[in-house]
């Protein structure tokens, strides 16, 4: 999958929860309080299902999830064979 494809998928998932228009790829999701941490669970479940790999405890770090860029990089790192 291309990086852009990954980002598009993440963006479309996020758009269901974040009201901010034209969310930028580097916008901070958690630290800027755009979303709450219950949402985090849904995000992790989404990632696990959409990209079919398990997010381990040690991966549960804000820096892996805090922006579209971060999530995409994380997904690509984990999903790479």
């Amino acid at each position: 999958m291309t990086t852009n494809g990954t980002k598009e998928k993440i963006r479309s998932f996020l758009s269901k929860y974040i009201k901010k228009k034209d969310l930028k790829e580097e916008d901070e999701l958690f630290t800027s309080r755009l979303v709450n941490s219950m949402f985090a669970m849904q995000l992790v479940l989404f990632i696990e299902k959409e990209f079919s790999f398990k997010v381990e405890n040690e991966d549960l770090d804000l820096k892996n999830f805090n922006s579209i860029n971060a999530i995409s990089a994380f997904v690509e790192r984990k999903a790479a064979p």
Binding site: S37, M38, M41, L60
Partner: peptide, 17 residues
């Protein structure tokens, strides 16, 4: 105390810094 069911709380703590 992690269980097979309370993963969400682990995340809540982690994501709350």
């Amino acid at each position: 105390l992690p269980t097979d069911r309370n993963r969400m709380m682990y995340m809540t703590y982690k994501f709350a810094n």
